[in-house]
Amino acid sequence: MIKESVLLESPSLRSSVLDRTDVLDRVKALSLLPDGMHVTTAMVATYFEVSHKAIESLVFDHRKELAASGYRVLAGTELTSFKEVSGIQSRSRALALYSRRAVLNAAMLLRDSEVARQVRVYLLDMEYLARTQPVDNVAPTAPDGLDARIEQRITHILGKTVVPMFNALITTSGEHRRELLELREDIENVERRLCWHHKRLATLEGEAPTENVRSTLKAMTWQAFEQHVAELLRRDGCTDVVVRQARSDRGIDITGRTADGRTVAVQCKNRSGRWTVPSADMQKFAGATCAIDRVDLALFVATCNFSHESQAIADLTGVVTVNREEVEAWTAGVRLKALR
C-alpha cells in the first residue's frame, strides 16, 4: 500500500485522486460559502487547523498546481458580482477562493497539519480498496455498488486518458487519420453509454441524480449560473476563465482558454419551463463571437432547449449549443465534448 507521504512528493499521484473530494467530509465537515462551491483562505485554515499564514505560504509555493485544481483570486467587477451572489460582506479589494478540489489538493501538500495527514491516509485507503477489490469474489448482496465504481473508473479513464491520446494522434497523423477518427468516435460512444447506464442504475436505486442536479440548477440566479458554468470550465481544464457579468458584454458572459489553448466565449441562459432560446439571442451571440470578438470556440449554454431557428443559426455560424439535458450531464460530471 502507498504511504501517505508519497502524496507530498508526487504531483501526478495528487492529480490522479483530485476527484475524491468526498474524503474531505469523511474526515471532517468542510463548511462552504453560500454559493455551495467555494471556501476562503480563512475557512481553509480553520478546516486544517493551521494559521492563515500557513495557507498563504502554501499558495505561494504551489500556486500553479492549486490554480489548476480550482484556486483563484477575484478582484474588481468579478469580486463585486460574487459578493452580490454569495452575500459575503468584505471590504477587501481581492478575495481568494478555493474549490473543493483545491482544498483536497492543499490537503495533499500540507505537511504540518494533522487533519491534512488524516485526509491523505483516508484518501489512499479508499483508493487502494478501489484498485484492489477482487471482482470475482464480490459478495452477492452488493454487486451493484462495485459495478458502479468500476464503470465510473472506466469512464474516467476513457475521458481523461484514452480520448486525449487519440486527439494527439489525430493531430499528428496523416495516412490513418480517418481510421483514428472513427475509433475515437467508438470510444466516446462507449463512454456515453457507461455514463447513461450509471445514471439509470442510480435512478433505479432511488438516488435520482438527475432530479437533484435539475433542482440545484433551477434554484440558481443568473449570476450564480454563470459562476457555475465558469467552475465547470475550470474543472474540465480551461484556464484564464473570466466571468464578465457586465451590461456591455455583447452577449458574451464568460471567456477563457481550453486546455489545448483555444480561445472560448460562452453565453449563459438560465431559463425553465417551456422557454426556448430565441433566434435573436443566438444572432447576437454569433455576431459577437464571429465578427467582433473572434474566438476559436463559442458555447451557448442554456438550462432549456433551443428553438429551431436558433439551432439553425448556431449550426450555420459554428456556435456549439449546450441544452438542458447536456448541462445536467455536464454538472453531474460528464466532460463537455467540445472542450476535449
Score class of each variant (00 low, 15 high):
144 D>R: 09
82 F>M: 07
240 D>S: 15
19 D>M: 06
150 I>F: 07
196 W>Q: 08
283 Q>G: 15
258 T>H: 12
183 L>G: 10
203 T>H: 05
161 T>P: 10
168 A>D: 14
259 A>V: 10
20 R>H: 14
288 A>E: 09
283 Q>M: 12
85 V>N: 08
153 R>V: 05
81 S>C: 15
212 N>M: 08
178 R>N: 05
57 S>E: 11
174 G>R: 07
324 R>L: 12
76 G>P: 01
138 V>Y: 09
90 S>I: 13
93 R>M: 15
168 A>T: 15
326 E>F: 04
112 D>Y: 08
316 L>C: 05
19 D>Q: 14
203 T>P: 01
3 K>W: 13
116 A>R: 00
311 Q>A: 08
277 V>Y: 04
296 D>R: 07
56 E>L: 11
231 E>W: 03
253 D>T: 00
177 R>V: 09
145 G>R: 09
58 L>G: 00
91 R>M: 06
248 S>R: 05
43 M>V: 11
205 E>M: 14
223 Q>F: 11
18 L>F: 14
225 F>G: 04
170 I>K: 11
188 E>C: 04
212 N>D: 06
92 S>F: 07
177 R>W: 05
242 V>A: 03
91 R>G: 03
125 D>P: 04
32 L>G: 13
115 V>A: 01
321 T>S: 11
272 S>K: 06
248 S>I: 13
314 A>F: 02
59 V>R: 00
169 L>I: 05
245 Q>H: 08
159 G>V: 08
329 A>L: 14
36 G>A: 09
5 S>G: 07
7 L>D: 01
300 F>S: 09
99 S>L: 01
319 V>R: 07
175 E>L: 13
31 S>N: 07
199 K>M: 15
41 T>Q: 11
28 K>A: 11
31 S>C: 09
219 A>Y: 02
51 S>Q: 15
106 A>S: 14
95 L>D: 08
105 N>R: 11
253 D>L: 02
